[in-house]
């Protein structure tokens, strides 16, 4: 199974900070930038894996994620800031605004793993359901096809699970 695009969306209204964050990340990932909530909302689609949010208020992006017409359930949010009162419920990680490039990259890498794990868990469940339906309908060829795909997905999941700690694995599985 081909790896899905894992784009990082940097939604930071301040131009200088946005540029700095983008510079730190673009050697490893495709990066989109947004200076306004409208631009960030427009950018949200199934190719986005991580959203890095800066500025005073991240709750608006949470609303955008929840109400996006695109598939956004897997998206992991990283909030850069110092005001804990503004932390959105969906922000998985919070880092200080003056975080180093290395720590930023390390955290985004971890969030990418979580996003990928999330997608694979969803795919595994959907395939399992489809297989169940095919079996109920007596479609043995379809069952065999689903079995092969499931084996491939499960192998990817097992490989990824080896690199994810329990907290992250169960957080992602239980969508916390």
């Amino acid at each position: 199974m081909a790896a899905p695009p894992d784009v990082v969306l940097v939604y930071v209204p301040d131009k200088t900070k946005r540029r700095s964050i983008t510079t730190a990340l673009r050697d490893r990932w495709s990066v989109r930038t947004a200076a306004s909530l409208d631009a960030a909302t427009t950018s949200l689609d199934e190719t986005i894996a991580v959203v890095v949010v800066g500025g005073d208020d991240s709750t608006a992006i949470e609303h955008a994620l929840t109400n996006s017409p695109n598939e956004c359930d897997h998206i992991q949010v990283l909030w850069l800031g110092s005001n804990e009162a503004d932390i959105a419920a969906s922000a998985v990680k919070v880092l200080a605004e003056d975080v180093t490039a290395a720590e930023l990259q390390q955290t985004v890498a971890r969030l990418h793993q979580r996003a990928r794990y999330n997608r694979l868990l969803t795919t595994c469940y959907e395939l399992s359901r489809a297989r169940s339906e095919a079996k109920a309908d007596g479609l043995s060829d379809a069952v065999d096809t689903h079995d092969q795909t499931l084996e491939s997905v499960q192998r990817e999941l097992d490989d990824l699970a080896a690199d994810i700690d329990d907290i992250d694995a169960f957080d992602v599985a239980l969508e916390k």
Partner: peptide, 17 residues
């Protein structure tokens, strides 16, 4: 069912590991 499926995916992997 969805949540239990996802939960078991993690647990069964941990058991095997």
């Amino acid at each position: 069912e969805r949540k239990i499926h996802r939960f078991l995916n993690v647990v069964t992997t941990r058991v095997e590991a």
